[in-house]
């Protein structure tokens, strides 16, 4: 039997659990932003797919220039950083300030390696004479990963704000909303990369 969190069942002992489960984690406004963002990336995926259909040989030649090991490393980095973020949000719900700060610090430390590998990747390409003007594949590569990188930078700043708040402010309901909203944004950065990685690096033609 499914219970609703309506007024009629709030007196039941299970009601708070269901009330908790019936709300979005974090701020609903952040979810609207996340939804809009993932749909914009959906449009990016559509553009890339159409381009690949029209110029498959060019896309395959260009794909082979990318380093999939770096792409995989970035995937593992973001997944691990996301995991620490889940642990931080969970600790915040328990009011465990030290665990919140430790897991946020780990999320930022691991996440920052993404910036290092991405900069290595961009500089290697540019030194090899490959830019966003080289061809359509690389226009999409630089634009999509660049927009994603911008999201990553914003996410790192948000994590720093979360850490600072955890240090100076009470770990209460307001903070939980903050860290849940930040966490959902950070997971979105992760999930977009989870799609960009195979689409750009791993889709073999032969």
């Amino acid at each position: 039997m499914r219970l609703d969190a309506g007024e009629g069942v709030l007196s039941l002992t299970t009601a708070p659990v269901h009330a908790e489960k019936d709300r979005l984690p974090g701020d609903p406004g952040v979810w609207v932003f996340i939804t809009a963002d993932v749909f914009v990336f959906g449009l990016f995926f559509l553009l890339f797919s159409l381009g690949r259909v029209a110029h498959s040989a060019l896309y395959e030649r260009s794909r082979l220039v990318l380093n999939p090991a770096l792409g995989l490393a970035n995937t593992l980095i973001l997944l691990t950083s996301s995991w620490f973020m889940v642990l931080a949000a969970s600790a915040a719900r328990e009011g465990a300030r030290r665990r919140v700060m430790r897991n946020l610090a780990l999320a930022m430390a691991v996440g920052s390696v993404f910036a290092v590998t991405k900069i290595i990747e961009y500089t290697t390409k540019i030194h090899a004479g490959i830019t966003m003007l080289s061809n359509e594949f690389f226009t999409y590569y630089f634009v999509f990963t660049g927009v994603h990188f911008l999201h990553f930078i914003i996410g790192m700043v948000v994590l720093m704000i979360c850490w600072r708040k955890a240090k100076t402010q009470p770990i209460d309901g307001n903070y939980v909303v903050w860290i849940e909203s930040s966490g959902c944004y950070w997971h979105m950065v992760d999930l977009l990369w989870v799609i960009l990685f195979p689409m750009l690096y791993l889709m073999r033609a032969t």
Partner: peptide
């Protein structure tokens, strides 16, 4: 194998959305 790679990515996205973003029991 390439199709499998895309399907694995879709599975990973679902796991992130359901478990990390906690949409499993949400509205």
């Amino acid at each position: 194998s390439t199709s499998a790679v895309v399907l694995i990515a879709a599975l990973k996205v679902r796991l992130i959305v359901i478990h990390f973003m906690e949409l499993r029991w949400r509205p």
